[in-house]
Design a protein around this nucleic acid. Structure first.
Lengths: 188, 188
DNA sequence: TAGCACATGTAATAAGTTACATGATTTT
DNA sequence: AAAATCATGTAACTTATTACATGTGCTA
């Protein structure tokens, strides 16, 4: 959805929270794919050009550029970059325009057969289950480390848990409903 | 998210379920903006070119072309189009890559102040409330018309209700948590 | 007669993905 | 010695939005 240009802010955010630790593009990509992967993604095709633009506008700076051995550029957020990040964090949330293919296919349900729909909802249920497991895994790690309170991560964790529970419950309820429906159109 | 090209299938789906009733591009856009708006969207810049491509590949056909008076092209799905729609409905759901700006901003919460975060979560709570109201409105209309069972719409309605309830509960819980946090960084 | 809803479309631009190229280092 | 991982990047392409152009018919 072509909108504001949020890639630079994800980078700024990750450099912002990694306190004074310079990070490489590769590390940023890794972080996106692991720690925020359940609510954000970026491709290399977005990250590396954004890094260049951020550096040339002085919002980040190259702190180390290891040429010998493995090539690696380490970036650090500048005060100007922190300011820009803060401004973005305070700006209103851009609501993502909805594009939920499962809902669309269910809505067009009369044009296909019940077993097909059941398959889609089962897959959705399994994804929700997987997500829920991931969340409780994180919660377990949290209580194992009582020293490190990560209050903001915990808010997002709570959302993940709440949403996947709701998805799971809805899927199971919907599967019960679908099971009672006449298989009007036989499978092909 | 550049993926399969789903616009034509939304069109095919809407023409598919509007039993034998030919529809104009304008009506299709209207339908998207009203009946499926909570889980899908399309712009005119997508719809009209897609309509052309669908017609030239024989998946839809112009049933009426009113030139006199208000210009209007009415499209109807062809048997070939129905086949294509069915195949798409049976194909696996393409999972939308996540891009949840609220979660991202919460995750970077340490880089801003608590009142800012509270503002974002309040806005989210209000959106969830609005959605929930819309859902119960639809449910009311459903029980008012006991004759017309719309089982597939009801599945999507159930999802809308479940998800917005979960969002609402999470938001309220999170606001309680945020209220207890020290306003470490004062507002600017 | 002004304004709104109806109606169809296009051009410029932006955002984002995919797939690849390139090469170093570490692990098996 | 092969394979995996670390590491940086680019080019071609697709999808999508935004903003506009153009015109009709109805209604206040």
């Amino acid at each position: 959805m072509p909108r504001s240009q949020r890639t630079p802010f994800v980078i700024l955010g990750l450099l912002g929270i990694s306190n004074r630790q310079p990070r490489s593009g590769y590390e940023i990509k890794k972080a996106i794919d692991t720690v925020v992967s359940s609510f954000w993604h970026e491709s290399n095709g977005q990250i590396y050009p954004a890094l260049k633009r951020l550096a040339s506008s002085g919002l980040i700076e190259i702190r180390a550029d290891i040429k010998k051995g493995r090539p690696k550029k380490l970036y650090l957020i500048t005060p100007k970059g922190r300011e820009r990040l803060r401004a973005w964090l305070a700006s209103p949330i851009e609501i993502g325009r909805p594009r939920d293919e499962l809902m669309l296919k269910l809505f067009f349900g009369s044009e296909t057969d019940i077993p097909t729909l059941i398959g889609h909802v089962e897959a959705h249920r399994d994804r929700a289950k997987g997500m829920l497991e991931k969340c409780s895994q994180w919660e377990k790690e949290n209580s194992a480390n009582p020293g490190s309170h990560r209050p903001f991560f915990n808010l997002t964790l709570g959302a993940g848990t709440a949403l996947s529970e709701a998805n799971l419950r809805w899927a199971e309820e919907s599967l019960r409903i679908l099971a009672t429906m006449p298989a009007a159109k036989a499978k092909s």
